[in-house]
Amino acid sequence: MNQHSLPLFEVFIRSKRGLDHRHVGSLHAEDPAQALDYARDVYLRRSEGVSVWVVRSSDITASQESDMASFCDPMDDKPYRHATHFKLPKEVDNM
């Protein structure tokens, strides 16, 4: 039997204006337009969002856990990027 399987899409929803699109799950569809329509039926049955993105799962490039050490650790030694690094007098500390 010709078992073609529908491609997988990842779905991202902006739940209200001003917020980021967040990954909510995935679904199968033949093309992006259809994926967008189905995102409405699958992930917006309760009006959960004001904007939807869909992207083919196969188009996502992901980091590998094994690489994460070399990927991220060098960032650990830069505490000056964090606000808490700078001690200020309490009078102006809510900066």
């Binding site: 199968h28 329509d37 189905y38 409405r40 039926d41 049955r45």
Partner: peptide
């Protein structure tokens, strides 16, 4: 399944 949900809507 996706179309099942859509038809129900």
């Amino acid at each position: 399944l996706e179309e099942d949900l859509a038809l129900t809507n």
